[in-house]
Design a protein around this nucleic acid. Structure first.
Lengths: 246, 246
DNA sequence: CTGCAAAGTTTACGTGATATACAATTCATA
DNA sequence: TATGAATTGTATATCACGTAAACTTTGCAG
């Protein structure tokens, strides 16, 4: 950055020799840094300044030569995240297993990058890795007899479930973080507040009861359950059509 | 507002008598105005300034006496929107119909207030109307034999589907708006760009094919389909448990 | 009337994105 | 190896937001 805070005296001797900035910045480095910042500190902390700082001694403006604007950077982040989802080269023998595995892997990626779920709905899925992933789902479904249009619908349903889960879990994590990650006590207090609110209403017996003992299936179990419902439904449709054709 | 742009001379005579601001602002008026702004111009346009302006001749700071801060205003907006969803006093005879109707009504509300889906995941559902709506779903499900914990899970699955649909449709609408709402030509061009991108990859036959003829079920049909899958799955679970008990 | 509480406004500050102009560095080439 | 052009990064400035603090205006109660 080497910015001289106006007013300070900046003798050469007070500064160690600047590290020889050998090969320049690049898109990949910037995207990686942005992802790291967003992972660690949340989307709101991912400012151009924070990303630049993470890359070393840079000003925010240094990034603009490589990424047009922040929106472009976000596009790149999304596709980089999508690239982390392992993708078989071709559909395997068990199509349900293909879809289930893809869904679980996608979910894991979102677990690593919670911001993904919040950003993916703000732009078309035009990145190459996003497209390849969608193509895989389409291929799997079409091979089972779905039209491409139907396959798009089914894929959208599954993805909706994945990102919806991600959003919800990210929210819970953020709330936990905000009310003090140090201690379960704070979190408990927040739940108690909700409980009292519900109890005060008087007409919310079930909700109040649950808030008093807020336990149930783990998020992963909930996810798997919902995924199963959707896959069952899709399978039903496909077999119905298949027998139609016979 | 009556702000004097610094430098201008502001003789009383140059200004018409200010409209006699009789009964003050209030939370409800502010929330209504905020919702109107967000509905018409999108979430990003919903700034404190825009809301104040919509209410008449006010400065942004005028709102702060009533809503603490913008986040509080958002909380109020969410619950006001939730209040628009009609809610039967008690579960009816057909529990599936109850859930389906609630889901469709919720979906319609989100259609009117697309920002809802984007905001609802950023905070706990602590508003009274949100809570009452959730309580209704729980009541319906518990009455069918679900535990409260299971009912929470099922309700979350349904809501995820509702807001997920809302997000996706809002995105499509926003894209259409951004690339010129005037004309189908612009939208078509955007799709053509996507199509070319996909075609350029070479390995995306299904996606490319669909982009060449991007038709399929309407969003509403997609929604109903997915909702059906989920309700079928839930019904299956409930009846399985019921027969367990026998 | 008078004086105080409530309602609104002014001003100011911090942060963020980003346009524009500039400086420094690197590299190719003569 | 010298030199000028291209590349890379910085400085500076602007604009929009949210919001704190202090101030002014308004309207009603005594």
């Amino acid at each position: 950055m080497r910015k001289t805070t106006s007013g300070e005296i900046d003798l050469i001797w007070t500064q160690p020799p600047p590290p020889p900035r050998q090969r320049a910045l690049g898109r990949d480095e910037i995207v990686t840094a942005a992802i790291a910042v967003a992972d660690e500190s949340g989307l709101d902390a991912m400012t151009m300044k924070a990303v630049a700082a993470r890359l070393g001694d840079y000003t925010p403006m240094a990034l603009y030569r490589y990424v047009h604007n922040k929106d472009g950077l976000v596009d790149l982040m999304l596709d980089a995240a999508a690239a982390e989802i392992p993708l078989p080269a071709r559909p395997g023998p068990d199509w349900l297993e293909d879809l289930r595995t893809l869904a679980m892997d996608s979910r894991r990626m979102i677990g690593r990058h919670p911001w993904f779920a919040r950003l993916v709905h703000t732009r078309p899925p035009a990145g190459p890795h996003m497209m390849r992933r969608l193509e895989f789902m389409l291929a799997v479904l079409v091979r089972q007899g779905a039209t491409v249009a139907a396959a798009m619908t089914y894929a959208a349903l599954i993805d909706r479930h994945i990102t919806g889960s991600g959003l919800q879990e990210a929210e819970e994590a953020r709330i936990e973080r905000r009310y003090g990650l140090d201690d379960h006590a704070k979190l408990f207090a927040a739940l108690a507040t909700l409980h009292d609110l519900a109890a005060a209403d008087g007409g919310l017996p079930h909700l109040t009861g649950w808030l008093a003992q807020p336990f149930g299936p783990t998020p992963e179990e909930q996810f798997t359950l919902g995924l199963g419902f959707l896959l069952d439904g899709i399978a039903g449709r496909l077999s119905a059509h298949a027998s139609d054709g016979v």
